[in-house]
Design a protein around this nucleic acid. Structure first.
Lengths: 346, 346
DNA sequence: TTGTAAGCGTTATCAT
DNA sequence: ATGATAACGCTTACAA
């Protein structure tokens, strides 16, 4: 481990027998430099293993070249994939991604806003997950650019990257209906969340399209977590077999997994006794027994899109950045084994 | 969105009618300040929503207050948990965590070393995952402090946080033996990796303890990925039922999941026909059918310990930082449903 | 084409 | 107890 001071531009300049500005010119090619001296500089850089002090650069340019990524729970593979997408797109543009997992690690409230104001972060990508706090979000966006992923705040048009949840929801519900199910219960997401609303809307479109009165199909509101899926499945399936729903339409995979768990616990076979579908297509969903039919969201792509959206915003002349239309990516139904025709009637 | 310049210390000083040094004194309490003037400063800070420019601070103190976290694959929940642990411990000490997912996002080679040298990062926490590159690691550690997680490089004593893989391996193998299994195949991890070696050593201890010749039990070497578990299970189970192994001991959960997948594909029941155990206790492992018996690693704690180790190193007077004994956390066998006595003989 | 010098926002030394 | 002022390492007019 070297305890000798890291070389500065001055050292490089001295070594190359030029001035510091010349060094700067070649490093950013921001000025004309004679080929021969440029070579000398490059050599010196190599020899000394020089690499510019980014704090000084940041100070000068007034930008940190770093963005924050706020995710509720990395253990959720959807978020993990988004994170990978963000990181990849950001590094491509020379920007670092700072990980913030507030709920998982109990971050001090308002920390992100502070990080923005202190210019440690140029902007933030925000995944709300299970609990959106519009107030904190708004406060955040007062301090700097924020891009939402898979969420939108009514009225305040923050830039966002979403996917076509409604269509995906409609299609997966249609798939269930096509198998002949009519006694269906929806285990929905939080109604305060955009995805919760969108997916529900999609399901209802499908029901209506199949000649069902959307209002006649019960909706149990969950919080997108596995436990709530388990609990709500219990509620939904508590009646006698004749009136019990034959299919559970869950607004995300985690809740579907919880529902699966409940079914296993009480000896209900999936899909023979009850069909279940989810939403997200987590990598684990293909590993379950039965493999879960669900809706694929392009998680990595959404992350990358969000990063690019944010970095574009930052690059802009920076008048009043209008949110603009949200970037919308498309979804796709993954048909697997957790749906079968309803059990034969009595 | 404000496009007005962010306030600097000078602004605060002016507003509070004191000098900048006074402001600095109160902000870091690094000097004596009359109570009344301190109040004025604090007020000004509040009013102007001032927060110090961290780039300038970093420049001055020669430290970025940020560390890098290199993980091969966030989608692997073990890494995700470690990441959460790192982030939590770091933020507790005011340090940011920069996410680097090289394989997932194709980072330029040697980037981390450069980030260290450019002082964007004060140190790095490195998870090797499936492929350790000692050369790159060594090069990295030349540029700055590195702490390894669940890995050690022979000969070069880099600081590390590990867990007692050998004991965990011994215990889970003992559990399998206790059910009466004698025809066992090990699906091991990469022999170049520390965990690969440790876990194998643990298994062999258990075999010897049960009166088996360790050299008589076949070891198939995998790469810790699901695919290799699947493929190696195919190899291991290809013989006739009489000679086929009755238990597969897998060096991690991912490979165990692959093995499970293979068994399902060829109609082998787990655990009735073949028992399987893993290592890691990924959150998904409890969701499988059957629930996987495995060894719990305290992933979050390991992350936190690594962060603290690194930050302690950074705080030190910084002579020649000796790696010291690796921090060692303990493991625990999670007994679940994937192990049963071997099928009755003919 | 090259060099000099003035900041960028903090911290810390040194007078006062 | 307080306030000038000189770094920190870099970029960028502006001069030469």
């Amino acid at each position: 481990m070297n305890n000798r001071r890291r070389p500065t531009m001055k050292d490089v300049a001295k070594h190359a027998r030029v001035s510091v500005s010349t060094v700067s010119y070649v490093l950013n090619d921001s000025g004309p430099v004679a080929p021969e001296r440029r070579e000398r500089v490059l050599d010196a850089v190599r020899v000394l293993e020089y690499s510019p002090n980014e704090s000084a650069r940041s100070l000068k340019r007034r930008s940190a070249s770093a963005i924050g990524l706020v995710v509720p729970d990395l253990t959720n593979q959807f978020f993990a994939l988004v994170a990978e997408g963000v990181q990849g797109a950001a590094i491509e543009r020379g920007v670092l991604v700072v990980l913030c997992a507030p709920q998982a690690t109990g971050l001090p409230e308002g920390l992100h806003a502070k990080l923005l104001r202190s210019q440690r972060l140029d902007g933030v990508i925000y995944l709300t997950g299970t609990g959106a706090l519009p107030t904190e979000l708004l406060e955040l966006s007062r301090s700097g650019p924020v891009v939402l992923v898979d969420e939108q705040i009514l009225g305040f048009d923050l830039p966002a990257v979403v996917c076509d949840s409604r269509r995906g929801a409609r299609e997966v519900a249609t798939h269930v209906l096509a198998h002949g199910h009519r006694r269906i219960v929806v285990i929905g997401g939080p109604s305060a969340m955009w995805t919760g609303q969108q997916r529900l809307a999609g399901y209802r479109e499908a029901f209506a399209g199949a000649g069902l009165d959307p209002d006649s199909v019960p909706v149990l509101v969950g919080d997108y977590r596995q436990d709530s899926g388990c609990e709500l499945a219990r509620v939904a399936l508590s009646g006698p077999p004749e009136t019990r729903p034959t299919a559970l339409v869950c607004a995300n995979d985690l809740m579907a997994i919880g529902a699966l768990e409940h079914c296993k616990a009480v000896g209900l076979r999936v899909p023979q006794d009850v069909s279940i579908v989810g939403f997200d297509d987590l990598p684990v969903s293909a590993l379950l027994t039965p493999r879960l039919t669900t809706v694929r969201q392009p998680a990595r792509e959404m992350g990358a899109a969000a990063a690019n959206r944010l970095l574009d915003l930052l690059a802009k002349p920076d008048g009043a950045p209008p949110a603009g239309e949200p970037v919308m990516l498309s979804t796709e139904v993954e048909i697997r084994d957790s749906v079968a025709p309803p059990p034969a009637g009595p």
